[in-house]
Design a protein around this nucleic acid. Structure first.
Lengths: 195, 195
DNA sequence: ACAGCTCTAGAACGAGCGCTCTATTTAGTG
DNA sequence: CACTAAATAGAGCGCTCGTTCTAGAGCTGT
């Protein structure tokens, strides 16, 4: 990776812009034309890189968003040794990011996941995989801190669910408090597992 | 309330059907024409009862869904004396309901809330109010069990957030486990508040 | 020079959107 | 019975949707 990274390619711009739009307005609420416009591309370019149409673009965008959030999670977890403190710090990070974005940039996949629930779309698959990957990141941290595999898995699922839900609550109530509270309570929960 | 309730009025049918459709496909993904069709009404009737158009129908539907879920919550909490057991039972109820609906009937407001985040729509207001009302129900139960007002408020927020998030996770992964795990962990958390 | 790619450009299509509008039927009141 | 208001009915408006299609621009290898 060079210090001065190359300007993003058209394809990259499309994926990044789509990820942001889906995060903010959902899958149904985001149109191909808006994607093209905001990515400074044309309809032709979008369909050139994604012959599968809107759904294909969305899948790529969700995978991008999943990876991005995974990095955020990994970083936050590695800044603290104690998993309880780490999770609480992670919730705080999310709270700050949320406020700074005007409460719009929440979880990059929830909206799309909910909108495509009935269908057997590839979007569903991508969202399920993202959640699983995030849980794995948390579970790994817990196991490294001495949790049994079973405890780690169950607690990790709950941590991701809680962060997910607290983020939505924070967005809707336009307040950091739900995320801060969730962070504190998760820390409290994690500390009950100390040997 | 009579044993044999009157057949639902056109207006009621519209609200109930809209609530279900928004729960399943979100606000943007639900069209007025589909609402009319499934409610066995016509476009004219919909606009007769809701001159404010789609947004007005949605607000009524969300308020309906909020009340319905509030009742479910209240009932589940009153079946058990111990709040920890009550919350765990509540999560189990949600898990069963979710599976029986084919994983489609989750939280009645999350999708609509996320889709309208940027806007200053009345839908936002209705969703925020719903979340607050649900938190109040849980907080009341906790206070009745001896929690201080501060503890009750913070824990109640977290309980709602966690149930919210676990429901989404359960829907996406098509499994009861995330909700079951969340229920167990919430019970564990609540028990740490025992004097 | 020129052929053969990839990529850009945007007009055009049918379908469906939210909503308005005019009729018509139904229900309630004197 | 007549009169009025409530409710039903759906055609049609302007618009945007996702997608397709043809045409041209930019680059590389020979």
């Amino acid at each position: 990776m060079s210090l001065y990274s190359a300007p993003p390619s058209t394809r990259e711009r499309i994926v990044v812009v789509t990820a942001r739009l889906i995060q903010r307005q959902g899958y149904v609420g985001t149109s191909i034309k808006q994607i093209a416009k905001e990515a400074q591309a044309t309809l032709g370019s979008v369909y050139h890189f994604f012959p599968g149409g809107k759904e294909t673009v969305a899948v790529a965008a969700i995978e991008h968003g999943a990876k991005e959030f995974g990095s955020l999670l990994t970083d936050a977890l590695h800044r603290e040794d104690d998993p309880a403190a780490a999770i609480e710090a992670c919730a705080a990070d999310l709270a700050v990011g949320l406020r700074e974005s005007g409460w719009t940039d929440g979880c990059p996949i929830t909206a799309a996941a909910l909108e495509t629930l009935g269908t057997d779309s590839e979007i569903q698959r991508a969202c399920a995989e993202a959640l699983r990957a995030w849980e794995d990141i948390v579970a790994k941290k817990l196991r490294a801190s001495g949790y049994t595999a079973e405890d780690a898995a169950e607690v990790a699922t709950t941590v991701i669910s809680t962060l997910e839900g607290a983020e939505v609550t924070a967005q809707v109530s336009r307040s950091e408090e739900p995320l801060r509270a969730a962070g504190r309570q998760l820390a409290r929960l994690l500390r009950t597992y100390r040997a």
